[in-house]
Amino acid sequence: MKWTFFHKLGSPKWFYEISGRWLPILGWAAVLLILAGTVWGLVFAPQDYQQGNSFRIIYIHVPAAFLAQSGYLLLAIAGVVSLVWKMKLADIALKCAAPVGAWMTFIALVTGSIWGKPTWGTWWVWDARLTSMLILLFLYFGIIALGQAISNRDSSAKACAVLAIVGVINLPIIKYSVEWWNTLHQPATFTLTEKPAMPAQMWLPLLVMVVGFYCFFGAVVLMRMRLEVLRRESRTSWVRTLVEQSIGRGGSA
């Protein structure tokens, strides 16, 4: 019984219909949560006694860093599904989630670097979190570059899947070795986000932002996946009727 759901996932048409229903919910949830979290974090949250107001960057830096890591995990999971069950939808997910994850890593890096200026006095510090984010960005670039270099669609997806799995096994090793390297060279004086005890007024908006970023990530990946499904299925009759309908409505939707 349970498996019928799993097999249905392999059908592009079913996915297109169901994701069409989910997309508006996810999208609006993301917009509302991110707006609420931003206002809460910028206006209502108290300022940090040590860092003052620059600490408010936490409300975008930490969610982006979360998504950067979860995004890579998602790539690896999609890779396993694609290699084991040969599911085309997993190929599409892998291809579509990689650029979004890279953008999240980029946000985490840029905001971390901007945050570092008032905190440490320089734009870039080889802090453990920032360094592993930089390496993660390189890992994302590797997957994107490999996917674009191989022209055959199926082997490109499979190669990316293998690379994502190898990367995700390496990721904890990289993370811990970078942390170890960091404590060795500059005895941890002041890490950006590790606070002994954050009051609820500070971490509640953070929680809202994290959930909002997850919804945002999901919505953008779904949007990209839906387009990719249309491209791959452009010869089927259901896509044709869909395109014909969209002519009537001016090509949008």
Binding site: Q47, N53, I107, V110, I114, P118
Partner: peptide, 15 residues
């Protein structure tokens, strides 16, 4: 933002 305006706003803007 207590003298941290440029940092906070540029971070939020870029994001």
């Amino acid at each position: 933002m207590g003298h941290h305006g440029p940092y906070v706003w540029s971070a939020y803007g870029i994001t």
